[in-house]
Design a protein around this nucleic acid. Structure first.
Length: 472
RNA sequence: CGCGGGGUAGAGCAGCCUGGUAGCUCGUUUGGCUCAUAACCAAAAGGUCGUUGGUUCAAAUCCAACCCCCGCAACCA
């Protein structure tokens, strides 16, 4: 049996957790839990990206020591992950000393593919950064924040020669050695690969001080790519340890916005290091609100903490894993969220647990544990990353059980004293709910644990308060 | 001709790859039940599948053209 390795993109910690991050965490966590329940050995990485000018300036603005600032922000994300019931086996911070040291080793190994060149562009002294041609055009050559003219400036950068690897990357994608899901993104990446220029991987220290110094050149600091992308292997101990047990990654979950870096720059780095490419890059879509892109200027940003507090973690996981597509953009509205909670979680599952537990308790059913496993349809869906389908399959069990109770009418059996029939019917129903519960457990770890306790306890008793209290 | 996604019942979506009586969830209406969180179960109403043309015995499904939404094209997840 080969070991599995699941990764999440590491968020840049210059702000609070976003709904977008939530998708990353939930998809990878559900898949990780599924693998574990299937008996696989697996590692599951997460972490935080902590270098760069934006963070450096944010820390200055908030009059905090940079280390204090990143500690606080990294912790915010760790707390958030925990609230989502997501438990990675490994958590990396790009400010970790081990990571920094390993990064330098990686840089050195990549040196045959790195060259230095002058970068020329428009620069704003106030912002301390280069801006794009388009931005210069839009602002008529004057920085709106500083009311100063952009100046043409050139600086030394190191570049990673992507062209050394293009053909190999293309082949890896085409042969399926490195698969990209969904398919249309794969096509997009193949196209992008053609046009990809070499990528700048460093900045002069005077322009970027908060980062990892380039080996053998104290005047340069690594730009985000090598620093952040390498986390996926430094967390496993590369290059100090042999990582072949877990690398290549089974699946790397990323947002559609950063897929290109994972499909082009990252494979180039890996090939430069002589490492195999990840088996699968899974790109997820964005979450819109009322059909509109979430944006600060529109003011429609949904804070995942608010979602969490509305009906609890189960409701959040339920909605994002069942009703949000894992490949294309989806829509979030509070109405949909409330409706999913009340009509589905509470009415279907919560109520089923309540009525069945009450029936068992009233009739003193003693239940013997029976082994359960994932159904083939479910396995098929999960293996193809169709989480919605797997979830829905599990949910049809729930709906069928509600039907079955109505058909069997246990209350009539009890009234007529048909004890044998009654016990058979009830234990079949409990079998059913435990099976459904098992298939739901990668998605709803908290709720399914509670349900297990109810039906596998000494005596079956309905929960004192409903599992999902209705809220209108 | 920049790239991509989508247009299917009141709403949200599946089906399209591998043509053959149009399906799911919510909502609405009616009936049933009482174990249960005013929950559950059954039935009904509701669609010329964006437009036009083509291929075919047969098209939501394949082909062509067009119209309309929406993303991406910039380290704003």
């Amino acid at each position: 049996m080969t070991k599995k390795y699941i990764t999440t993109a590491i968020p840049y910690v210059n702000g609070n957790p976003h709904v977008g991050h939530t998708m990353d965490y939930l998809l990878s966590d559900a898949y990780y839990r599924y693998l574990k329940l299937s008996g696989e050995e697996a590692r599951f990485q997460s972490g935080t990206d902590e270098h760069g000018n934006k963070i450096f300036h944010k820390a200055l603005d908030s009059k905090k020591d940079i280390n204090e600032y990143i500690d606080e922000n990294s912790q915010k994300f760790r707390d958030f992950i925990q609230k989502l019931d997501v438990y990675p086996t490994d958590f990396i911070r790009t400010s970790d000393k081990d990571h920094e040291r390993r990064c330098k080793e990686i840089w050195k190994k990549l040196e045959p593919h790195i060259y230095s060149a002058e970068y020329e562009g428009w620069y704003c002294e106030g912002c301390e950064r280069f801006v794009t041609e388009k931005e210069v055009e839009e602002n008529n050559g004057i920085c709106p924040d500083h009311q100063k003219s952009y100046e043409k400036l050139s600086e030394k950068n190191y570049y990673l020669r992507i062209s050394d690897f293009k053909e190999k990357i293309r082949k890896a994608i085409e042969t399926g050695e490195m698969k990209i899901l969904p398919d249309f993104r794969e096509k997009e990446m193949l196209k992008l690969l053609d046009e990809s220029p070499d990528v700048s991987v460093s900045r002069p220290k005077k322009n970027l001080s908060w980062g990892i110094t380039v080996p053998n050149d104290d005047s340069q600091v690594m730009y985000v790519w090598i620093d952040a992308l390498s986390n996926y292997i430094t967390v496993l101990g590369y290059p100090d340890n042999d990582i072949s047990d877990f690398w290549p990654a089974t699946v790397q979950f990323v947002g559609k916005d950063i897929l290109r870096f994972h499909a082009i720059i990252w494979p180039a780095m890996l090939l430069g290091l002589g490492l195999p490419l990840p088996k699968l890059l899974h790109s997820h879509g964005f979450i819109n609100v009322n059909g509109q892109k979430m944006s600060k200027s529109i003011g429609n940003v949904v804070d995942p903490i608010d979602v969490l507090e509305r009906h609890g973690v189960n409701a959040l996981r339920y909605f994002f894993l069942r009703h949000v597509d894992n490949f294309v953009d989806s829509d979030f509205t509070w109405e949909k969220f409330d409706s999913a909670y009340n009509n589905e979680l509470a009415n279907d599952l919560g109520n089923l647990v309540q009525r069945l537990a009450t029936l068992c308790s009233k009739n003193n059913l003693s239940y013997k544990t029976k082994e359960t496993k994932f159904s083939p349809v479910y396995v098929e869906a999960m293996n193809n990353f169709k989480f919605n389908e797997a979830f829905e399959h599990a949910w049809t069990h729930v709906q069928n059980l509600n039907k079955k109770i109505d058909e069997e009418k246990p209350w009539e059996l009890a009234k007529n004293g048909e004890t044998e029939k009654l016990e058979k019917a009830l234990s079949e129903l409990v079998d059913g709910i435990l099976h459904a519960n098992f298939e739901l457990s990668p998605f709803l770890p908290d709720a399914t644990e509670k349900i297990k306790d109810i039906f596998l306890g000494e005596k079956i008793l309905p929960p004192k308060t409903p599992l999902f209290p209705k809220e209108r």
